[in-house]
Design a protein around this nucleic acid. Structure first.
Lengths: 152, 152
DNA sequence: ATTAATTACATGAAAATACATCTATATGAA
DNA sequence: TTCATATAGATGTATTTTCATGTAATTAAT
């Protein structure tokens, strides 16, 4: 009998440790998919674009690509092209960074703010509908405190 | 002042509900990336291939593509091409399904079993290293029970 | 100051993915 | 049987992502 568990959809959990990973995996995929679907059905961009827009909206002075990369856990090359697309849509703008000729600063535009707001009208309720129960059951703090150490 | 939280990398949590989603998001991405990296560095295929191989290894009679699709939360078209690649590598085989001329049955090959085992030698320890502490802290059951309702 | 190493970002090419659509089989109703 | 609809899976096309590099600016060492 093999001791190896699968990642997903496992019926017989082979170890508690693996059970956590399987559950995390399925939960993330499941929720993520539904959120992307909801946004797409509303004719809006993906969650990744939202993350970038919101990150820039919160930072009054703008941010540099490598900061987004670190904060949002994007691949550098992926982010690079993604930013170009977002810039092409006029949602953010890139300016030269004074002090380091290699860098640039990204700032959200008025159009970008408007779009982010529209996205939030879909996205916010999605978060509520998926995680509302957990919060009601007062489990949120616990779950967050368990998940946090996994990051990085 | 906007009430909208971002998805990731949020410093000031705006609501418990969103905090859960942010933590889940970052935790999943972080862990998933490291696991994929470990497999790649060992010259092995991705986690998705592992999931398919293990799912087929566990089912003695083989499985049909749509069953994998449901269990592993893959896109149908994505799975279709992925299966062709795995078949091309000789890791699984496809047979006609008696009883429905449209369907086919997938079975793992000996080569597939060997590869899955090799992958587990990397993958298993990765799961342990990421989730071991959590389990040691005896929170595993709790975490799983909280995550489960999020699935589907 | 020269050289070497590092950092920030970009890009070509290959691979993966999504979406819509297509074929073939199956099922059910009239 | 015939027609409508549903289901299993494959594929064309467009887009996105990854991988390995490339370029340019900065920093550190000599």
């Amino acid at each position: 009998m093999s001791k190896s568990p699968n990642t997903l959809a496992m019926k017989e959990i082979e170890s508690e440790t693996t059970a956590v990973w399987v559950a995390l995996n399925l939960a993330y995929r499941s929720v993520h998919r539904e959120m992307e679907k909801a946004l797409k059905e509303a004719g809006l961009p993906s969650l990744r674009w939202y993350d970038v827009l919101w990150e820039l909206e919160r930072s009054r002075d703008g941010m540099r690509p490598f900061e987004l990369e670190n904060g949002l856990l994007f691949e550098q090359s992926n982010l690079s092209r993604m930013l170009r697309r977002i810039v092409d849509e006029g949602l953010i703008e890139a300016f030269a960074y004074e002090g380091d000729g290699r860098g640039k600063v990204l700032r959200i535009t008025a159009k970008g703010r408007r779009l982010r707001k529209r996205m939030w009208q879909i996205y916010g309720p999605q978060i509520e509908s998926h995680f509302g129960k957990i919060v009601d059951a007062n489990k949120a703090g616990k779950l967050v405190s368990i998940l946090k150490p996994l990051i990085f």
